[in-house]
Design a protein around this nucleic acid. Structure first.
Length: 555
RNA sequence: GCGCCUGUAGCUCAGUUGGAUAGAGCAACGGACUUCUAAUCCGUAGGUCGAAGGUUCGAAUCCUUCCAGGCGCACCA
């Protein structure tokens, strides 16, 4: 749409330059936007104001010149005018919009989807929570945003894969195993005093221990810890990871790949990455540890990759992991982090540079915290004490559609208030239903039409000239905006634009519905209006599908 | 102390990367169902865009300083 207008303006600019001897800077960018007020026109451009300075001309006069060279009457342009300080406003004809609406109907599911772009292979990594406990609400936001971003990027034509990095190595896995072992002993009456504060407190640990007890009885009760631990560690980790996978499935989040950190150690990738960096002098020994010279690449300081103990740090394997991503052919790496990990971003960028890649290959998205509320009251949570609301609890309480919508409706970089009471309500306050309701209403109109014996001719035979109401064209214009919203959201990696757009879109519809009846005696007009609603229904469906939210036919 | 994020209507938030008179939802108030779903619609009211400077034709948006809140600043992950 906008590209089309840009072309029209570009041609006008060329003609103006030729006939008026106007000097145009080579790098001038034609920006098309929507006027604040719909009455001013369908599109507007500040082109004249941008040109005013280099051309040393009055922006208003320049705008008039340019507007005069727009081919009115051709290509769907109905009028071009000048307003304000020098805006050029363009109005398109109704015929133009009717044709565009036909295109939407023809596109169906692909309306809003851009053709595949070949230039980039994107790897989107998100959640990647340690498999030491169930996912909580904060992970839920990351999961919803990441999953939606994946769907969005795919719709925008990018080649995207999603991945969950499983931190199945390291000390926290030992603590998980030990926590389970201690609970197991408690269950069998062998409590060894106070449960350690730095171990995992959650009830799920006891559940795992009970599971082991049921299957293995007292088999491990007298074994020394060193001997029993590997079994407990593995059993607990598998149990927790399976739970995470199940929770995510239920939340409609499917990863293309689950990447195990352990494999990077097993196949020597970690050591290989270290050697590679050492050869190039980006790694050095000091105080018995091995450091990455990250300060040479915009990080505040150097970072330890191998501890004095000889153990590699989490950061160390992450270097290998990101190298691995690039080696798999990905040209753009997007990582979603919880806001508490933002300090990690500069060092990851440093890693990319040290590895010889452009820093811009790596892109971090920070997802801010979620404050869970219940009727305005803050729900206190603390991971350490094991008192936290899990994602699956929230989903069980409010449903997948609502939970996803609440996570997606706000910009990722603002704190999110998630009020469970509000989310549960099935009335006005809940924006999810507002959108879904519109879809259900449209479906119901089609059922009514069918019941009244309305049959569809070939789509090309529906006479769209019977669409004459202003609101019908407002609706069409809004429908046609959808591809632009998808493209822009994908470009800036901001998913919240999609729910906002959908809300605006269906608001126009709800108003139209109230004032204009679709199914009437006038058979031809009924068909024209149904045609319009079909385009709208397609748009709502495609939009909700990007959000991973269902489009119910009945409510 | 240093860094990142945030500050816009009573509340929760948008604001098309510098554009035209700053918008929506909720809450408040007043209206609208004998016709396709009232989970809806229409109207009223609500603002020193945290503060002060600066940049220019033009600033909620960019720059500087300050204030407030959140989060970081490990040989944890």
């Amino acid at each position: 749409m906008k590209e089309y207008i840009e072309k029209i303006l570009g041609e006008a600019l060329k003609r103006t330059a030729e006939t008026e001897g106007l000097e145009v800077p080579g790098d001038i960018e034609i920006i098309v936007e929507k006027p604040k007020d719909e009455k001013l026109g369908d599109f507007s451009s500040n082109l004249a104001m941008m040109l005013a300075r280099p051309a040393k001309k009055n922006p208003h006069e320049l705008a008039a010149l340019l507007a005069g060279h727009i081919a009115v009457g051709e290509g769907g342009v109905e009028s071009a005018s000048v307003a304000g300080p020098g805006f050029i406003n363009i109005t398109m004809s109704r015929g133009f919009y009717r044709d565009r609406l036909r295109q939407v109907a023809a596109q169906g599911e692909s309306h809003g989807h851009a053709p595949a772009r070949k230039e980039q292979k994107v790897l989107l990594e998100f959640v990647s929570a340690n498999p030491t406990g169930p996912l909580h609400v904060g992970h839920g936001r990351g999961a919803a945003v990441g999953d939606c971003l994946g769907r969005l990027l795919k719709a925008a034509g990018y080649d995207v894969r999603t991945e969950y990095y499983v931190n199945d190595v390291g000390n926290q896995m030992n603590i998980l195993g030990r926590s389970t072992l201690l609970r197991y002993r408690e269950l069998l009456g062998r409590s060894a005093g106070e449960f350690p504060a730095d171990h995992y407190q959650g009830d799920y640990i006891t559940d795992i221990a009970r599971d082991i007890q049921n299957k293995h009885g007292e088999e491990f009760i007298d074994r020394p810890e060193a001997e029993a631990l590997p079994f407990f560690r593995k059993t607990a980790a598998d149990w927790v990871l399976e739970g995470i996978k199940k929770d995510l499935r239920e939340f409609r989040v499917d990863f293309d790949n689950w990447f195990s950190e352990r494999t990077l150690y097993d196949d020597g990738s970690v050591n290989r990455a270290l050697d590679w960096l050492r050869e190039r002098g980006f790694v050095y020994d000091q105080d018995g540890a091995v450091w990455l010279k990250s300060s040479a690449f915009h990080d505040d300081k150097d970072r330890v990759v191998v501890k004095q103990s000889g153990e590699q740090t989490y950061f160390c394997s992450d270097i290998a992991y990101h190298q691995n991503k690039v080696e798999r052919g990905f040209t753009r790496l997007i990582d979603l982090f919880g806001a508490d990990h933002h300090g990690y971003v500069p060092r990851m960028k440093a890693v990319m540079e040290a590895l010889g890649y452009d820093e811009s290959v790596f892109h971090a998205i920070l997802v801010q915290f979620v404050t869970l509320k219940r009727g305005g009251e803050k729900v206190q949570m603390s991971t350490r004490s094991g008192q936290f609301i899990t994602l699956s609890e929230v989903v069980a309480e409010v449903g997948v559609d609502v939970a996803r919508y609440f996570f997606l409706m706000r910009s990722s970089d603002t704190h999110l208030d998630f009020d469970l009471e509000l989310a549960k309500q099935e009335t006005p306050e809940n924006p999810v239903y507002y959108i879904q309701y519109a879809h259900a209403r449209i479906c119901n109109i089609f059922i009514t039409a069918e019941q009244q014996g309305v049959t569809w001719p070939a789509k090309g035979e529906v006479d769209l000239s019977l669409l004459v109401e202003d609101e019908e064209f407002t609706l069409i214009k809004k429908i046609l905006q959808f591809p632009e919203v998808v493209e822009k959201s994908a470009q800036v990696l901001e998913v919240h634009r999609v729910p906002h757009y959908l809300h605006e879109l269906v608001a126009v519809f709800h108003g139209y519905y109230k004032r204009h009846r679709v199914v009437t005696e006038d058979r031809e007009r009924t068909l024209a209006r149904l045609f319009l609603l079909d385009g709208l229904r397609i748009t709502i469906r495609n939009g909700l599908s990007i959000l991973g939210i269902s489009a119910p036919e009945k409510m």
